[in-house]
Amino acid sequence: MSALEFVNVSKSFRDVNALSNFTIALEQGELVSLLGPSGCGKTTALRIAAGFETADTGAILLGSTNIISLPAHQRRMGMVFQSYSLFPNLNIRDNVAFGLKVRGVPGDARKKRAEEMLDLVRLSDLGHRMPHQISGGQQQRVALARALATEPHVLLLDEPLSALDAKIRVEVRDEIRRLNRDLGVTTMFVTHDQDEAMSISDRICVMNNGVIEQTGSPRDIYNNPATSFVAHFVGSINSLPMGSTRVLIRPENLVLATHDESAHWRGTITDTTFVGAFTKISVVLDNDNSSVSVLAISAQIDRNIEIGKSIGINEATR
C-alpha cells in the first residue's frame, strides 16, 4: 500500500486545465519531486494534497483512506512554503510548537518536543529569537522543524529553496534529504530546478501542461527520457540529423573525432568554454547549420581546439 496516492486527479481554473488525470503513488519514506516549468500543474497537485485547492475529480489516498473531502487542518500533512511562512508574532520555539499547541499537547511536553526538533535541524540555540532575527536559510530549517514536529503522514515542500541564495540552497537541500532519510517521512517536493530534483529525489515526476511526461529515478529520467520534452527539460541535449530523422544526444555522449574521415558529423567550432574538469565546445554543423555542444574532459583534449577550426563529431561508444 502506498503512503500517498493521487488517482486521476483533475483540476481546471476557469478554462485552463491545470491538472489532467494526475496519477502517482508515493511509497512510504520515498522522496518524489514534481519537476516542470511554471504553470505545469506541480504546485496545484501539491496544494490539492494539502487541502488548499479542491480537485474537480479524482481521489487522494492516504494509506487506504480517501482524504479528498477533508479540510486542510484534518489531513496531517506537513507543509513548507516558498516564502518564509513562520508566524512573525511567535518566537522560533513557539513556531515549532504551534502544531502541538493546537492539538492540545501540554506546555512541558510541547516545549521538550520543540527543543528536540530544533536540535534535529541544528538550531537549538535560536529558540528564543523572533523569525525576523534569523536568516532565510535558518527560517526554512525552522519551517521544516515546525512541519515535522507533529509527525505528519506526508511532508509537502512547495519550492522551499527558491528564495535562498546558492550556497544556502545546497545546505537546506541536503538537510531536507537527511531528514527524509533519518525520519523515514514520505516527502513530495515541488521544484522547477532540475539540478535540485536530480540531487534530492528517489523518483522524479516530470510534468508539463498539467500532465505527467515521465516518472522515474533521476538516472532513468536523464538517460532514458520518455519524451522530447523530458529530454530537453532535464539536462542539455543536442538534436543531430541522422538520415531522414533526428537523434537526441547529450553533450557528454559526443566525442571529437580523432580521424576526420571517420566522423559522423562535421562542423565548425564557434566557441569553447573551459569549466575546469570539462570543456564545452560549441559547434555549428556544416550540413544543416544546427548548433551542437560537446562536453569533453579537459585533460583529454589533445588537439589544438580553436574557434573557426573544422572538426568531426562522433557518438561516444559506451
Partner: peptide
C-alpha cells in the same frame, strides 16, 4: 496577512478559529 500563514497554520492542524486566536488577531 500572508496567505501562507493561514495555510501553514491549517497544515499544522489549526482550525480557522485557532489561526485567528494565535496568529491573525495578534498580528
Amino acid at each position: 496577512l500572508r496567505a501562507a500563514w493561514s495555510e501553514a497554520a491549517a497544515s499544522l492542524g489549526a482550525a480557522p478559529w485557532q489561526y485567528w486566536r494565535y496568529v491573525g488577531l495578534p498580528l
